[in-house]
């Protein structure tokens, strides 16, 4: 039986029993998803990688904290989200965190495209930067739900467990977050047009 046949919950149980290869399998399964989640959250590649490493170290050292009453993905996203939020708060307190520091200033908003010509790829990069910039302007509680829902494509139920808020609150928060994101991107687009 290959490890792909095990569920995440079975793998963490095996790791709790001392099987280190189960841990490495979990790392393989989650590293890219979590990286994209954290990157969308903090907007910085190096910081996202550091926080991902912290998350995975925490899973290793606190493996017995996991109980099978929750999905493993809920647990690991909770750890990653908490670490990312804590880091952002720390940075905000130190007043060293700014979107300009992320090298995203002055980027334009373009809509996504499936065209892969060089100019379109360039536009794609710009769009991603604009989206990232707009995400950075969302309040943390809005940013978290929109990333969990639209980037990670988690269910409302799972988001509710990760954020420890009622299902109805998740739904209304996702709606408000999407509307706010749309508003921010429209303003960015309008600014760009005015500059042109």
């Amino acid at each position: 039986m290959t490890s792909h046949e095990y569920t995440d919950e079975e793998l963490i149980t095996q790791f709790q029993a001392g099987n280190e290869s189960a841990y490495l399998e979990l790392v393989e399964r989650f590293k890219n998803r979590l990286f994209s989640f954290i990157y969308r959250f903090v907007g910085d590649v190096d910081l996202a990688e550091d926080l991902l490493q912290d998350t995975l170290v925490k899973v290793y050292t606190h493996k017995h904290s996991y109980r099978e009453i929750a999905k493993f993905s809920t647990w690991i996203y909770t750890i990653a989200g908490n670490l990312a939020r804590t880091e952002l708060r720390k940075r905000r307190r130190r007043a060293t965190f700014s979107m300009s520091a992320l090298g995203l200033g002055g980027r334009e908003l373009e809509l996504p495209s499936t065209d892969h010509t060089p100019s379109k790829i360039h536009e794609g990069v710009q769009t991603e930067a604009a989206i990232q910039r707009a995400l950075g302007q969302l309040p943390l509680h809005f940013r978290t739900v929109v990333i969990l829902r639209d980037v990670q494509e988690l269910s409302y139920d799972e988001i509710s467990k990760i954020m420890k808020i009622p299902l109805g609150t998740v739904k209304s928060r996702v709606n408000r977050a999407r509307l706010r994101l749309q508003e921010i991107l429209s303003n960015l687009d309008e600014n760009r047009r005015n500059k042109d």
Partner: peptide, 11 residues
Amino acid sequence: IQLHLKQGVTA
């Protein structure tokens, strides 16, 4: 926007 968010990150 939703479509773009789902496309993932290039990083």
